[in-house]
Amino acid sequence: MPPKIILLVEDNPDDEALTLRALKKNNILNEVVVARDGVEALDFLFATGTYTGRDISIMPQVILLDLKLPKVDGLEVLRRLRADARTKLLPVVILTSSSEEADIVNSYQLGANSYVRKPVDFAQFMEAVRQLGLYWLLLNESPPVM
């Protein structure tokens, strides 16, 4: 059974550290791969660029995707994911600061599975991460690897 990894796409090092801390504090000990922009995220998923040669049969159990990213933004990453047979069924949770209606609508239109706004209050943030981990890593059945 392949390891259940999490792909965290996040450019803000503070948010990255806080998310990792929240996962750890909630005893979610799965491997977390961090991509700091859209290109890196796509490289990892399709085993290109710095991730050339990666075992592509290992896909993340869930992708935590920020929308505002350098180079290729979150919505574009989502679009390319959904356009490729290998990744089109992967669970994608949008985890962002934005609560703009347009972002929410666009995310769902492009096939996001969930949309969560990052709370400023760290206690609430912890709770959000806990519930995400519980749901996507334990409760939810992942699609079979293509």
Binding site: D14, D15, L18, S97, E100, P119, F122
Partner: peptide, 21 residues
């Protein structure tokens, strides 16, 4: 608005989160 919504909140999350840490 988008920038305010997204960019002003991120540092606040850092301040709050690391204070808690």
């Amino acid at each position: 608005s988008y920038s305010v919504s997204h960019d002003l909140r991120a540092p606040l999350r850092g301040i709050d989160g690391f204070s808690q840490a």
